[in-house]
Write a protein that binds this DNA or RNA. Structure first.
Lengths: 216, 216
DNA sequence: TTTGTTTTTTAGTCTATACTAAAAATATAT
DNA sequence: ATATATTTTTAGTATAGACTAAAAAACAAA
């Protein structure tokens, strides 16, 4: 497995290759390589049983390919957590360096880094971190940021940083409380929540990443 | 610059290519590649002005090559500090992962990591960390671990971790005090110091890494 | 100094990854 | 349905990095 193959598999995954067939054209655009190079890489990955290929239609990940894609995603997201939490990267800065690091990380390194970071469940964007074996953890609760306007939910888990907890206290947001999401501004804008008693609370999008809810 | 070229330059450096001509043979052994591959790589690095080459004798780093070698060493050693201090790697475990990571580190990442680690001067083995621009910092003080038996020295700087400071206090080792190194056991064994008043103190090799001294 | 050994270089191959240009297959539109 | 446009594949080429085998140069030793 080389960095290039890894990137290719990741690209297929991100274009929906877990379920549907992904066209050469979309891979050409995603990876900025020629169509011929995509065909080349397809035949190589096919030989390794990482994808299935329907000529003139596209490729799909095999079980093996999917497992690798998820393990890469695990590495990527654990690095993102590190970059954001420990090195002070902004959420939009983490991606490029995580992309480099994920290809240079032994399993041992990732597991130790994971422990150092206290086994995070989500990356800085709120994405779920896959398990070591490439499976996706059963998430009963979803980040508030992923809720749609109009949905009702219950607060299940919040980030446990001191200042964030104080912020929530001040906003009177507490575990178990039920809300309805009444508005969510685009471009990482604020969310408006309405409690059962009709009071409205406005919180920022970063906060909405740190709050896990269960839809009711 | 590719990881292979980087490793090649590092190998030349480690074999003394800053000053003397390094033979193909030594590079063959160091990198476990064929003699023909060494010649190939030499011609490539020559084209980029990273080395000078005397046919049938060997190669030497140019100024440019040396700067790159030191910047790589900087990356390598900063990662070693991270692996040892933050992820709990043993001193002998850090090398392999640092070797991978050093090729996947943007300058930005290394500088932020350096700040996170509080700008260490030495790696876990006591090696000096080169400056960002590829120069070697002027070290007035040397780690105690690098002293030879019989030398006299003065304590200049010690690691400032709470428990280590308590340990030193208990051993009555303090800044400015003068000692003579009277014994140093091999295989990371303990060091025996003798103060001016003739008292002997025995400290472990790890502690000797954390103590900087000036020879007198 | 002549012979034998070691080291380096050259020549030719191989694989991974890219490319362009052209051919083949598929999709679209009148 | 036939012409046109798009997408995919094939064919041929390039570069980085590796190899083996053989030639050339340098070194060592009797």
């Amino acid at each position: 497995m080389t960095p290039n193959k890894e990137d290719f598999i990741k690209a297929i995954y991100e274009l929906g290759g877990e379920e549907e067939v992904v066209s050469n054209k979309s891979l050409v655009q995603r990876l900025s390589i020629s169509a011929a190079s995509v065909t080349d890489m397809n035949t190589r990955l096919l030989k390794e049983d990482l994808i299935t290929h329907i000529p003139y239609q596209g490729v799909k990940l095999t079980e093996k390919g999917l497992r690798i894609a998820n393990q890469l995603k695990r590495k990527h997201r654990i690095w993102e957590v590190f970059l954001a939490e420990k090195l002070g990267y902004d959420w939009n800065e983490v991606h490029a360096d995580a992309d480099l690091l994920e290809h240079a990380s032994s399993d041992l390194l990732i597991e130790r880094l994971n422990v150092f970071l206290e086994e995070p469940t989500f990356d800085p964007h709120g994405g779920v971190i896959p398990n070591k074996d490439g499976t996706i953890p059963e998430i009963k609760s979803t980040p508030l940021i992923e809720c749609e306007v109009g949905e009702h939910f219950k607060i299940k888990e919040v980030d446990d940083q001191q200042d964030f907890l104080e912020y929530l206290l001040q906003k009177q947001v507490s575990l178990g409380k039920e809300y309805k999401l009444v508005a969510s501004e685009p471009y990482d804008g604020p969310l408006t929540l309405e409690s059962l008693s009709g009071e409205q609370t406005i919180i920022g999008h970063k906060a909405a990443h740190k709050i896990l809810v269960e839809k009711v």
